[in-house]
Design a protein around this nucleic acid. Structure first.
Lengths: 214, 214
DNA sequence: CAAAATTAATCAAGCGATTGATTAATGTAG
DNA sequence: CTACATTAATCAATCGCTTGATTAATTTTG
């Protein structure tokens, strides 16, 4: 029973994550979520206290897995700057592309220009990823492996922005790539390897190119 | 009177655009918008028919200006591939960074995975920008100016994704860059020139780098 | 039986939209 | 120019509906 309770809560969160991604936080109603999850509406409040509680529970579930992934990336002292960068790209994209519903949700919330408790919380989480990436770039620049004129702040925007563009605007990116980026098999066999290779090539090109106008 | 009517409608759309960007479509209420615009709630329906009418009016206003900008970009036959690319970057970023409220709104709508009339409409608009950019890249590859192994589809994701990251997640990008990216003066004096220079350097590096693993 | 889980019924609040009445601006006839 | 008629703009009040949340009753479980 304890086990099944956890499963049922997990099932609710799975459904809620999808519905929030489809409809947005405000657009998704508790009736929608409970209806699609096949549970009574009151169960949401019984389990999670409130609609916002459901929303936060989704984040906490994903984030704990997320933080674990981050540890170890960029801290492997056996790797040089290029090795760390390559590993970050591979592991980050691996982790992130499959959880597309969650990341669509996350980015929609974070794009609200009004600051709230929720946007602050999300911001601090996202910033942790940013710092890991930025540290790798900084170390590479210091060691001389990367171009010292590189704009490491905007390179962050490119790293995460490119990924977001693929994941968050599926209608657009599917049209551009000629594949359904929402399809799990496509993600695994086509999107992931292609994006990994591209990102590494792009970063390498930028971080090693000869500066011609300086 | 006719002039002032247009001004008032424009004022309502200005406010609505900001509130929609701040709160999302569902999060923004007609009472909020009319309240902040200093007009009676019924005026929204009087002028625009409905809440959705207000939303669509915002799009139509921006899009007509948008389409005009697109004409001429990438069609200047006096320029070589690099010249076209540089011009696209400069003019696109100029046009797009100031309308940040609108683009936040647009991207939030387009990130909804459920297809609707609105997402279809927005998708086709965005794709026009994409095609202009992609054509420039393709021509450059054909003429031999650009690396023939370049992934032109994912380069699209980088071009627009990088911009989106800066514009759509202002809390994040402000923290990264150390400036308030929502501030108009900052946009003009710091963000725009820096992003323009960065984008061009990045594209050039990628499109000219020597392929080392092929 | 007692505790936990689940349900249907219900609540106040907020939503978008509509209404009829009122005011302001404009046009028209004498 | 003035008095009347017409249109546009604005308002407060209110409609029906959906929302998130709570309640009390019922079922399930250990």
């Amino acid at each position: 029973m304890e086990k099944e309770k956890v499963d049922k809560k997990d099932h609710i969160l799975d459904v809620a994550e999808r519905v929030f991604a489809e409809q947005g936080y405000d657009g998704a109603s508790t009736r929608m979520i409970s209806g699609e999850a096949g549970v009574n509406m009151a169960m949401l409040n019984y389990y999670f206290g409130s609609k916002e509680g459901v929303f936060l529970a989704i984040f906490e579930r994903r984030i704990s897995a997320f933080q674990a992934t981050l540890l170890g990336i960029g801290n492997d002292e056996d790797l040089d700057a290029w090795g760390k960068l390559a590993q970050f790209v591979d592991r980050y994209l691996d982790k992130v592309i499959n959880n597309n519903c969650f990341h669509i949700m996350l980015n929609r919330e974070i794009s609200k220009s009004k600051k709230t408790d929720l946007t602050d919380k999300i911001t601090s989480i996202v910033m942790k990823n940013v710092y890991v990436f930025q540290d790798i770039i900084e170390d590479g620049i210091k060691s001389g492996a990367f171009n010292k004129d590189a704009d490491k702040e905007l390179l962050v925007a490119t790293m995460f922005g490119t990924k977001n563009y693929i994941v968050n605007t599926p209608h657009i990116s599917s049209a551009i790539l000629g594949h359904d980026v929402m399809d799990l098999k496509t993600q695994e066999e086509i999107i992931k390897p292609r994006l990994k290779k591209y990102m590494k090539t792009l970063l390498k090109a930028y971080l090693t190119h000869e500066n011609d106008n300086k």
